[in-house]
Design a protein around this nucleic acid. Sequence first.
DNA 1: TTGAAAGCGCTAACAT
DNA 2: ATGTTAGCGCTTTCAA
Lengths: 369, 369
Amino acid sequence: MDSRKKSTTTLKDVANAAGVSLGTASKVMAGAEGVSPARRQQVWDAARQLGYRRNSLAAELRSSRSTSIGFVVPDLTNSFFIELLCVVEDHALASGYRLLLAHAQEDPEREAERIRFVLSRQVAGMIIIPCHGYAHAIDELRECDVPLVMADRVDNSFPANTVTTDSRRAARDGTDHLIALGHKRITFIVNALDLVNSRERADGYMDAMKRAGLERHARVVVCGMTDTESHAATLGLLSERERPTALFTGANVATLGALRAIRDAELRLPDDVSLLSFDDAPWMSVLHPRISSIHQPVEAVGRAIWQLLHKQLEGEASEPVHLRMKADLRVRESTAPPGRTTGKGSKDTATAQQNAGRARKRTALAERE
Amino acid sequence: MDSRKKSTTTLKDVANAAGVSLGTASKVMAGAEGVSPARRQQVWDAARQLGYRRNSLAAELRSSRSTSIGFVVPDLTNSFFIELLCVVEDHALASGYRLLLAHAQEDPEREAERIRFVLSRQVAGMIIIPCHGYAHAIDELRECDVPLVMADRVDNSFPANTVTTDSRRAARDGTDHLIALGHKRITFIVNALDLVNSRERADGYMDAMKRAGLERHARVVVCGMTDTESHAATLGLLSERERPTALFTGANVATLGALRAIRDAELRLPDDVSLLSFDDAPWMSVLHPRISSIHQPVEAVGRAIWQLLHKQLEGEASEPVHLRMKADLRVRESTAPPGRTTGKGSKDTATAQQNAGRARKRTALAERE
DNA sequence: TTGAAAGCGCTAACAT
DNA sequence: ATGTTAGCGCTTTCAA
């Protein structure tokens, strides 16, 4: 027998104090019909006085109804996901739901674990932005029938509702912009090609290069999920004899690493090299030069995600819907016609090559420690 | 009576399928002692086969033990909080706890609601970074006795464990740096003075100004919590006849707004005006000029928060502890000696004034729409 | 309108 | 080592 004085006031305590039955007290707290104003007041008073706080775990267990929505996000460092999270949360709160956030940290194992966790908390629905190697994620969801919306890193082949940006088209537009400026050696730096949207971005880039007859200059460099990796990859690129005249980074995080590498190589943007970023961020338009980027329609994506999920929560089952939003190119100052100094063998190139090489060595050394 | 075919497999189903009792099955799932290997296997097999997923709500309800920690954060847009969140989460996961994130969006009402929500989910402990007007927050916590750690926007007068950065000292150091460069008209731009740490930052700034005999030049401008507000405030500052030669922004978000304003005024950093940012961010060291900033020790703060909380979770009650970490000044390129062009009445000043004035009007117009 | 009673899925103390 | 049983705090029939 438990002899500890229990510290939490339960609904039963409130009912006792108010002199009503447990059931009545429950109705009052739930704001349900069929309780006289007098009793209603008694219960409220008692609750306030005892400092009652409902145990929503118990409530949800008993009613098997949940108002939590799991939101599985791969990387909180990426401002696009943060913004999306905020947008979705606003919609969710407005409809009476709360988000249960799960951070996968770009790790598939962790993602699978997070999904299991969220599911074990009996969420009413799930929103998942899968990470690299999402097969795990899908497996976890096989035999579970909670309403689900997957976003961003998915495509129309998913057996679930999806909301995405038209990455292929946006990447094509971006590449066209660079080509129109006169660039030929345009390199696409992408985090991982087994990320559906990254793959699409790479495809869009290839589309444009091919169409412009620049196939032999086309080059896709896979750099990994972190800015450290992107930094290293870009440094490698910049220390080549015939370095690209333009870089097109396939994601937010890659852009940061590339930018660091360009600094390390002591190259000037856009004179020595142009940079276009897939994914925008607030800071990109605030320092020099402002970074040209492809801006995803966060608001629209967030709204669509919630609409799709909400419809399912309301019980409207239907065939999976696939929504695709249009991104827009924001030309700023980091993209310009290729400079004259980038010709093979020019002095500047040699210097940049040296700088980049030195920076690579420094980095390698630092990592070894 | 409920006639729907229930879709979730419960532990009871597993027990039945395995031919063991509910209690035994429970022990197996909890990994407890005292079950023969044979039965253990049977249960695991049955669980796997039926696709059993434990209902952790029920488990926590019954055992009145929770492994969730509430984390109430004021602003997910601020990369400092995001980084802190990641650090804390790593520690928490390593100790077997999960975070339940609650976003207050710099709104005290919402914060209070979020705290109530988190509490109603029966968390084992709480970490709170309060927002502007945190009195609400404190009230919510009055009669609740979950282990609590408050961080960042608190001081030693709080009746709870706290972890903070020594803001006053850091702000003093930063101001000294600007003074040493030769600046006199240094303006401090701060989000809100009823935020304890912001107040401390302002105090540190005043300390340094006074000590240098620059009291008459000292000026603290309160701008509000958003970058939009900071943008407007800075624009105002820059359109003055005798504008400051150096700006010291009191927080991450304020820096972004100030930077935008500096751009709008077509001022060059650091030639026309110096800028020092309290709070660092990854992007600050990647474009031109690199922003000098005060870097808070996120790792240390996060670790300390978890240590304090974990100690309480383990039942070691003690008097509130107040931990204070040291931040470091990172001098980069946005701070330099005041330029010659900033003299009263010079052509450049007049131009900047015009630009800033125009930008203000544009902004005001845009807001009216 | 109100109260009594039967659980939600699980754990833990107690028997066996 | 295993099964039985009494709840955790709440919601929700069902009778009164």
